[in-house]
Design a protein around this nucleic acid. Structure first.
Length: 202
DNA sequence: GAGTAGATCCTCT
DNA sequence: GAGGATCTACTCA
């Protein structure tokens, strides 16, 4: 198992990177306790040209400043006052591309995740949906801007490959306000995985 | 099983 | 001062 190098994130094709993140391990080691999960669902946000992105048309604020950083850092923010959403920043400096990790399959530290979420037994909701997975892994807004080369928070490749025919594509979720762009097929997930959040799939 | 409303708070206008 | 890259629970059938 090895961390994905910075060069993995610093590429131009955010859709390609999103697809390649499927099957990788997202690992957090806060307070010396490790929790990790396999990425089974992601969404790409293509920066300035993407109406659903916080950085649409070059918007730049304190909140999304980190999206303009070089690829390979995290972008975490709070939505609806409740949910922490975990993103990976990609591409080069000043290009605000990001990938939202929407669902994980728990791998290690499941008991710790249960404790964080307040459940007694693991079920499909533990790491399904961006709000839930962030909570399960202990990711908070203060982790926004953290490098994915750190030892507390990173993405690793354990050699598990995902076959092309296991990957499904669909429009993104929860971005209806983005008009035409809400229909873009920028969401990637692993077919048949019970942790994929697919409640709005038709 | 499907549809809808409420929770809840940070961020930008 | 308004609204959001969501989730859950509750209603109704």
């Amino acid at each position: 198992m090895k961390k994905l190098p910075t060069s993995f994130y610093q590429r131009k094709d955010v859709l390609l990177i999103a697809r390649q993140l499927l099957g990788k391990l997202l690992v957090t080691r806060f307070n010396k306790t490790e929790t990790s999960g396999r990425i089974v669902e992601v969404e790409a946000y293509a920066g300035a040209i993407d109406k659903a992105s916080h950085a649409y048309s070059g918007r730049r604020t304190n909140r999304n400043e980190v999206m303009y950083a070089k690829g390979g850092v995290t972008y975490v923010y709070l939505c609806y006052g409740i949910h922490h959403l975990f993103n990976v920043v990609t591409n080069y400096e000043d290009i605000p591309h990001a990938i939202l990790v929407r669902a994980l399959e728990p791998v290690t530290g499941i008991e710790i995740m249960l404790e964080r979420v307040g459940k007694e037994r693991p079920d499909n909701t533990l790491t399904r949906g961006p709000g839930n997975l962030s909570k399960a892994l202990g990711i908070l807004t203060k982790h926004s801007g953290t490098s994915l080369q750190s030892n507390e928070l990173f993405i690793a490749d354990d050699g598990t490959g995902v076959k092309k025919n296991q990957i499904a594509v669909s429009p993104r979720i929860g971005v209806d306000y983005a008009g035409d762009h809400a229909l873009l097929p920028y969401r990637f997930y692993i077919k048949g995985n019970p942790f994929v959040s697919g409640k709005k799939v038709k």
